[in-house]
Amino acid sequence: MITTIIIPVFNEAQVISSVIHDLKQFGYKHIIVVDDGSFDRTSHQAKNENVYVLRHEINRGKGAAIKTGIEAAKQLYADVVVTFDGDGQHDPKDIRKLLEKVDEGYDVVLGSRYLTKQHIPLLRRLGNNFANVFTFLLYGIWVTDSQSGLRAYTKKAFDVIDTQNDRYEIESEMLREIKHHHLKYFEIPMHVRYTKYSTSKWNKQNAWNGIKTMFKLLLTS
């Protein structure tokens, strides 16, 4: 079974090498980094790690980058794809837990920050709860972490999932597709590392982006 890790990145030159290095230490060899129009040395750093590096010449958003990664994974005959954030906040240890559930027959396995006790900044926690309720009202699917970026999709799932939005809406859109295609899904607790670096980046999902995301989801629902 070929498991391909997709890492969408935008200006992560500082940490991308260590993220890839960590993944390799856990035995994941099939890694696709999608550089979403970074203007730092992200692509260069990733290429040095000897993984597939695809580059969007202009920034199109996390959703677009993940979709490009999935298209590439299909061409590389992946059986399972795992989406993994490029800022170092995900723990490669959690991938094994995702894959165990895939082996049990689930089509999609979602990592959740809220199924285990850990420190999550209050504003982020509130924002996520709001997003969960909003996603539920819009698509009728309840999960404890609708905005989690750590997810595993089997071939059955990524072959049928079709998303349209390019930006952060993709996380909720994926849930819509799970519901629409009656895919079997499961949530597992995941560990998240909120470092000074990962929380200080300006391009992260903030309140204003959250409002824009909701507006776009409403328009395209």
Binding site: H56, T68, A72, Q75
Partner: peptide
Amino acid sequence: IETQITEIVRKEALKDIKKKK
């Protein structure tokens, strides 16, 4: 137009994977 731009950008990016294959 946004969708079309993304499609073009994606096609360009995927050319690399074809070359590497």
